[in-house]
Design a protein around this nucleic acid. Structure first.
Ligand code: FES
Ligand code: FES
Lengths: 147, 147
DNA sequence: TTATTACCGGATGATTTTGTCCGGTATCTG
DNA sequence: CAGATACCGGACAAAATCATCCGGTAATAA
């Protein structure tokens, strides 16, 4: 569905959001990688993308780390995270790989896939990182597998 | 969404199906690659997978090529093609990359993604190659972009 | 100020996916 | 049988993705 980078990015963002909403404290890279079960160095690259896109805030130095401002918690959507990392191919490209998805020259699956893709876009567009972080906080969602 | 290999495989299968239903004639690799706009040698690999999986029939020698039997046209679903090439990750894996998708330890998006994935599975399960080939035959669907 | 902390950025390497090449083999035609 | 055709199979190569390493830089705290 999404690339590994995107999966790590989403999980990391939600964890950062959870900690930010919970206690306002910043979380370090090591902490993030441990909690979401992702490779540390690679996760750093992905987070840099999110910081450059303005979706996550970072602070250097001691007591530094990553955080989500109250505004970011409220406004940053899953869709923005996916677009920043994976681009729009999954969100608007043709399911069968035609160079463009359009009713002009639709692939044989076009009209079957449209509602699916629309629903996917809707889910990504209407869910904020802060909202998902709340679920994790309430024990309704998990960011890694516990055995 | 799907891998390149899978996209080529689906488009190729539909084209083979269209020609088989249309005139019963077998189509060669070159013809297929041209008509669906895919790299010839790579498409050959993908078709071999489909032949081994029993979803497409091949015949060697002069006048040989690929074909779909009437039974294959009637019974082979898109889902079988996708499973043969890409496996089940997209069809049953967790959207956020958790090692397993389950209500036991769901990711924060689990319940939002379930209906989307169910709908995707339903579309793949209920559409046969023969049915989609019919659309192409009737000019209602295209397998490559015409400028 | 000085030392420490922790993110930043570029270079590098491993793995998977994508794509090509070519000889082998089965099949059909004459 | 002889020759041509076209799929088969394995080796090989290129590109994208995934992942690591390490010196640089900004910020904090003593
Ligand atoms: S043209 Fe293929 S999904 Fe729209
Ligand atoms: S656990 Fe993530 S989609 Fe089911």
């Amino acid at each position: 569905m999404f690339s590994k980078a995107c999966e790590y990015g989403i999980r990391a963002a939600i964890y950062i959001g959870q900690q930010s909403a919970d206690s306002g404290r910043r979380v370090g890279l090591r902490d993030i990688a441990t909690e979401v079960g992702s490779p540390e160095a690679f996760t750093a690259k992905v987070l840099q993308q999110l910081v450059r896109a303005g979706l996550v805030t970072s602070v250097k130095g001691p007591t530094g780390g990553f955080t989500l401002t109250p505004e970011q918690l409220r406004t940053v959507t899953l869709r923005q995270v996916v677009l920043a990392i994976d681009g729009g191919q999954m969100l608007q490209g043709c399911a069968l790989g035609l160079t463009q998805c359009s009713a002009k020259q639709p692939c044989p699956l076009h009209y079957q896939f449209l509602p699916i893709r629309d629903q996917l876009n809707e889910v990504l567009r209407t869910h904020t990182i802060g909202e998902l972080a709340g679920k994790v906080h309430d024990g309704l969602g998990f960011l890694r597998q516990f055995s």
